[in-house]
Design a protein around this nucleic acid. Sequence first.
DNA 1: CCTCTCTAGATTGCATGCAATTACATCTAC
DNA 2: GTAGATGTAATTGCATGCAATCTAGAGAGG
Lengths: 238, 238
Amino acid sequence: MADTGRTRQSGQVVEDLTTSLAERIANGEFPLGTWMRQAKVAEDYGVSRTPASLALSRLEAMGVLERVPNRGFRVRYPSPREIMEVFEVRAVLEGHAAYLAAGRITEVQLQQLWEQVAGFRRVVEMIREGADSEAVGAPWRHSYSTFHQTLFEAAGNSQLHEAAEALYRKLPRKISWRVLRGDPRSLTQHADEHEDITTAIEMRDGAKARQSTIAHIEAARELIIAHLPTPEPGRTRG
Amino acid sequence: MADTGRTRQSGQVVEDLTTSLAERIANGEFPLGTWMRQAKVAEDYGVSRTPASLALSRLEAMGVLERVPNRGFRVRYPSPREIMEVFEVRAVLEGHAAYLAAGRITEVQLQQLWEQVAGFRRVVEMIREGADSEAVGAPWRHSYSTFHQTLFEAAGNSQLHEAAEALYRKLPRKISWRVLRGDPRSLTQHADEHEDITTAIEMRDGAKARQSTIAHIEAARELIIAHLPTPEPGRTRG
DNA sequence: CCTCTCTAGATTGCATGCAATTACATCTAC
DNA sequence: GTAGATGTAATTGCATGCAATCTAGAGAGG
């Protein structure tokens, strides 16, 4: 069972399934190419196959899964080309978000950004001190998503946020961490870049904020591209 | 029946339903706020309620419909705020597409853009000559979507294209035409702006192409905002 | 005349059943 | 031993049934 625990309200099953599955896939619980069987999902969550099928279909519409007719859904295997494209669009969107944020951010939100920068620093320190990279993955991802969440809130354009979220969903988040965790130098650079962005926003320098964000995402893209795992065609059963 | 006519392949019903409904909604066939009943959709397409429900759920995931628990789906009523935000993100995305296109476009694609510019001119001419605005709405929308389709193809980033498409779906296309059709001056300006963009791309001037595109979309946004219809709360039955 | 309560009808949301399709293993022919 | 045909198990995709839920309207009470 992967239930959330709280009593489920009527008419919310599909919503819960979709959210939960999206989260689990993003966290890398299901390897790329894994077949998501209706019956398995239904059993896992204690529901029938109808809502399971609905949730899987929604995840396909969201770009998380791919559908093979009469064979079902599996976790999408983004091609190197697709990954590059996603990063390029992310750079444009987040760059604009940083630009907007520089002109609108509140003191509270700015402080929130600084806290996450500090969070990145702590993770870097822990890695340098030999902490288990798997254990600090969660706090790293937490700082990462909080930073971006705050950035987009400060930008004040929810459509911009949604467009970026749709892109995030196309790449499992764990990919980034798998690449970064073994490379303290890149980790430090990553933290530095977040500080650059935050500083530019604090200075209310929109152009610089945009430029720093684009540079940050392009650096991340290069790192990922260089460390792409070799694709392995997913098995059909299982 | 709103079937496409060709024999339906097995395992394609939901796909067809989703595409067809998205198209019909985008074309304004269902007024904003209209309730999309499962039974009605199922009957219209000669299928059971299961695939109808699936298609509606997918359309919600795509941002076309909104869901009210235990009451169903209805065509989303974008708020003025949301419309403004969509246009702002469109400006960023399409601006970047124009920038990329300037560096990569082929001769054939460039010619395609010019053809659509000519198409806009023809529509403007027909309106000036007193043509029925409803009748030339279709060719106008055709030129519009072909122009953008070609622009994004030339940009060569399918993620960029998908992100923009997702935004288009959030606003019924007929809205734009309803605003423009009664205003020959704006129509002419619209055509001029498309020509500016195409010229910049032809000159391989990426910065200018981006700037022209952003100016174009911002002009469209201002026009739409100024002509927003007064929202009328959708009825619950019907 | 207004407000609250109750009821009937409509609609969704989920469970289940079954035919169509597919993958995989086995068997046969050469 | 290999290529092709055949059978079986697994899986999807759609149809249908039914309980839970919601709306609208009638009727009672103030």
